[in-house]
């Protein structure tokens, strides 16, 4: 539980759009240790998914990784040749997507889609790949695996398809599993099952998971470590208990306050006032300043650094700096 599997160092990914440059991922640094579940939290458009896609080096045009390093076992992924990167994808780093309904190819059988990475990366023969695929389908908790192997995606429910996606991702025993909002498109009971499944898998294979979500319930259930992102920046990073008990950044505090608590009824949930800033041409201030209850003079002038405090708790906020007091 100690070695860094993945380390993002000052990653910058920009999108060159017609209305200007969008810094979707702006100087992001954090690391994922072996066998750890790290959750990346933040609202839509804050750069969570782009961070993950940068890790896979699959940022689509007009996006481009413009700086920083992504170290995988000490090796910079951004410097690898396309062929070497292709070897890692699906083999050592696998990904689960948000919408299981559209993530499977409608014209290929389930079996074909599970067996494909096995045949490419593990060089298994047709029979071996089929045997392994059926094991995988059973592993993710779908009965009648042999029958499912020959069926087409349209014959399965959403929950089953997400299980199949997990089976595909697990097929080559990856070291890191990236899950991009894996439960968002599923209903609550299925969500719980999928999360249970992922936890079991993590225990069994010691797979590190990078989970992207905006659901704090999922975070509380799954995470060892949490990274909070806002407008392309990491604003807070802490072990999960520390973050829930002692959120430092006003944005994180707001997020936690906005969560409904089952035991007490409120007429209206708390909302963070204001809107996410326009991502085009952001200035040199704290991006949260106009929505922050504690906004000070320095917040509009200078950007706070991500500094480490007690208990491995990092935050980027002037409230905790000398200059801010």
């Amino acid at each position: 539980m100690s070695n860094n599997l993945i380390e993002f160092r000052n990653l910058r990914t920009n999108f060159y759009t017609g209305s200007g440059v969008v810094k979707a991922v702006n100087d992001v640094s954090f690391s994922i240790r072996e066998g750890e579940t790290l959750c990346v939290v933040g609202e839509s458009g804050c750069g969570k998914s782009v961070t993950a896609m940068s890790l896979m080096r699959l940022v689509a045009t007009p996006g481009k990784i413009v700086g920083g390093e992504i170290l995988y076992k000490g090796e910079d992924l951004l410097k690898l040749k396309e062929r070497e990167m292709r070897y890692l994808r699906g083999n050592e780093i696998a990904m689960i997507f948000q919408d299981p309904m559209s993530s499977l190819n409608p014209v290929l059988t389930i079996g074909h889609q599970i067996a494909e990475p096995l045949r490419i990366h593990k060089k298994l023969s047709k029979q071996e790949a089929k045997k392994k695929s059926i094991e995988l389908i059973e592993l993710v908790g779908i009965p009648r695996a042999a029958k499912i192997y020959d069926s087409y995606p349209h014959e399965l429910s959403g929950g089953m398809r997400q299980r199949i996606m997990i089976a595909i991702a697990l097929s080559c025993d990856p070291k890191l599993l990236i899950a991009d909002e894996p439960t968002t498109a599923l209903d609550v009971t299925i969500q719980a099952q999928i999360l249970d499944l992922m936890r079991d898998i993590k225990k069994e294979f010691n797979t590190a998971i990078m989970m992207i979500t905006h659901d704090l319930g999922v975070v509380a259930e799954m995470a060892d470590h949490v990274v909070v992102m806002y407008a392309g920046k990491v604003i807070e990073e802490a072990p999960v208990h520390e973050l829930f008990n002692n959120p430092k950044h006003p944005y994180t505090q707001g997020l936690l306050k906005a969560k409904p608590v089952i035991s007490n009824r409120q007429d209206r949930l708390y909302t963070i006032p204001g809107q996410v800033p326009n991502p085009v041409e952001l200035g040199e201030n704290c991006y949260f300043n106009d929505r922050c209850e504690h906004c000070m003079e320095i917040c509009v002038q200078k950007q706070p650094d991500l500094n480490i405090y007690d208990n491995k708790h990092k935050a980027a906020c002037w409230l905790y700096e000398k200059e801010g007091k």
Binding site: S102, S103, L104, V107, E116
Partner: peptide, 26 residues
């Protein structure tokens, strides 16, 4: 641009596989 192609890409498939096994059948 469909999501299943992004998924296929994340599996590390070669271009020829993507074109002939995943796209053309559609």
């Amino acid at each position: 641009e469909q999501e299943f192609m992004q998924a296929a890409e994340s599996l590390g498939l070669r271009d020829s596989k993507k074109i002939f096994r995943h796209l053309l059948p559609n």
